[in-house]
Amino acid sequence: MGILSEAIKRILERPATRKYPKEKPKIPEGFRGRIEWNPETCIFCMLCAINCPTNAITINKEKKEWSIDIGKCIFCGRCHDVCPTKPKSVSNSKKYELAEYEKEKFRLKFRKSERGG
């Protein structure tokens, strides 16, 4: 009887589910999404690359290149925690729709240009 009365009570309520692709969820504060790199503050100290638990980050000091493999990244945010610059050069963004058809597209490479940026 318990379930039946509950079912009757809820029959006129709105559905509890969200229509996801049309209706985006609200991203909470502190969400750990895709890692983003800010070339302007980066000092190429290698701390993020050394401390990454899955070795997803690689840095080329001479070419001033910073790259990340999102397929390897576990979004733990350790690179953000260990980054010594202010404001932090490496940080979690709020991007979460990261699926791709090809593996190659997960390897993202960024370069610091002479003018910065």
Binding site: I3, E6, R10, A16, P28, E29, G30, F31, R32, I74, F75, C76, G77
Partner: peptide, 24 residues
């Protein structure tokens, strides 16, 4: 019904930590 109400706990986690699972 139970899973719908479980969402209350999941939302609370999301609120405090930022993520639903693996909140580090």
């Amino acid at each position: 019904y139970i899973f719908r109400d479980r969402e209350l706990a999941m939302e609370t986690q999301e609120l405090l930590t930022g993520n639903r699972v693996h909140f580090v």
